[in-house]
Design a protein around this nucleic acid. Structure first.
Lengths: 276, 276
DNA sequence: CAGTGGTCTAGACCACCAC
DNA sequence: TGGTGGTCTAGACCACTGC
């Protein structure tokens, strides 16, 4: 890496070096790094410089500081959140993204878990109000939950439903009812979502998100706004997700062939998902 | 701001305060903030503390430092990159994401521009090799470009095409040919892409990306890997995008209604997502 | 040249944790 | 109690910009 003309500051070089040591196993996952004093001595710099280098690794999610204990290397690998439409998979109905991730988490030997923080009526945030086409004073049903892999929080998800929808699908008020798979009771109530949009942003976490997701102010989160519409174009659900950026890969897949070929009856296509 | 039980450090509080002043117009866009010395005096802290606070604002893209001049408030608002499938729009063919963004940039009164950095044969990175199902030694056509809004870089995009594809569509070798809209010549050559996948990550930029996209080490980028497949499931193109995270909103939209018609009954959803 | 931010240091005090 | 990281300071030197 002959960085001509771009002399990197010491803290950046040290961060890169430590990152390499993590990659090659010199600093194994789940184990604390040498203390900042020790590293300062090794590299012949002040502790402040080491602290700044570690700050970069914390921001990128490579390490996590445990107060009074040390700075340990992160263990969780990236999880894939698959939002492949059924056109691209030939399955009947794609599972909601969270559920797809659940099976991946299980596959990693971890236990996916969902905590419900709140299920009840509320006045939604402005974004939701706008999408649902309601007024500021209108109330909606909210289902707020947090997902975990073992004990590590992986995601916050808040779903909002207009009250007319809830009236036709009272199961939504049950804590056990939807569980992320709210599309099943909705479809059973004749409210099948058929069109979806999803906006993805990346931003710094709020204080609440830092607390709930165990993040630092310098780490970033994916923020998605997922909207499900009925055949008639009415919004059924607005779901906002907040996910630590270093934990996830968002996978989208779609298929524009449907209007070009006759419906495959019975026999399925050999269109398998591409290898990764 | 009654942050009970969570005393924020001074630099975080100052960052929040400055962010609020940007939002309310006290510090207008495009104008330098007061110097760090001045801010240190105003808040009664050392310059290092101010520097750290500003560091947070730089990481989130709220301000941008110009050497020797000062720290100016960012002017560019977020751009939406719309990847809505035609099922959701009923248009004949969705424009490629970059083109959709171009019109939005124009709408903001800015001039979209594309620089071609490289068009030619190369040995692709491992990710591309794997997706294309070729060997490490195989060569492909690469089209590397950088997009701008006026003079601000907004995106790096590298497209890779297998040589057999290029043989059937020689226009791809022309610098003017594809211009992000490579699907047109491909379709003309009988290579219509019909299925797509896109993986979205967020990560810190490489040194090259920092240089090209005018980013700092603490800012994050969206990294997407976009793959286009033919009807037969053969990969036509792998396109990797790198976008400053603070500049973009990625919008996905799709429509699952097409297969809904022949099966209106709410019968059991047996078929599940295919294993990966 | 003066003003800007970039970086680094030595030293200090604090909160937290394990023993 | 000793080790860990969190934060802050005063002071210093540097590179870059614009006058």
């Amino acid at each position: 890496m002959t960085t001509i003309g771009t002399p990197q500051p010491q803290y950046a070089q040290i961060a890169e070096l430590v990152r390499a040591r993590i990659a090659d196993g010199t600093y194994p996952r789940g184990v604390p790094l040498p203390s900042e004093d020790r590293l300062a001595e090794e590299f012949g710099v002040s502790r402040v410089t080491i602290n700044r280098a570690i700050g970069l690794l914390r921001a990128s999610g490579d390490v996590k500081v445990r107060r009074g204990v040390g700075t340990v290397v992160r263990t969780l690998p990236r999880i894939t959140r698959d939002v492949t439409t059924r056109h691209a998979t030939d399955s009947r109905q794609p599972p909601p993204p969270s559920r797809a991730a659940d099976s991946e988490i299980s596959g990693m030997g971890l236990r996916p878990r969902t905590d419900y923080r709140e299920v009840g009526e509320t006045t939604p945030p402005p974004v939701v109000t706008r999408i649902l086409g309601i007024t500021e004073a209108d109330r909606v049903l909210v289902r707020r939950r947090v997902h975990y892999a073992d004990e590590d929080p992986t995601e916050m998800a808040d779903s909002y439903y207009p009250l007319p929808v809830v009236e036709r699908c009272p199961d939504l008020r049950d804590v056990d009812g939807g569980c992320g798979g709210a599309y099943v009771p909705l479809a059973a109530a004749g409210l099948t979502p058929v069109r979806f949009t999803e906006d993805v942003d990346v931003r710094v976490p709020t204080e609440e998100e830092q607390r709930v997701l165990d993040l630092e102010p310098t780490q970033v989160v994916f923020h998605t706004v997922h909207v499900a519409y009925t055949f008639d174009g009415d919004p059924l659900e607005v779901c906002m997700h907040v996910m630590p950026g270093h934990l996830w890969t968002l996978r989208y897949g779609w298929d524009d062939r449907a209007e070009e070929v006759p419906e495959p009856t019975g026999g399925s296509h050999h269109a398998h998902h591409p290898a990764r």
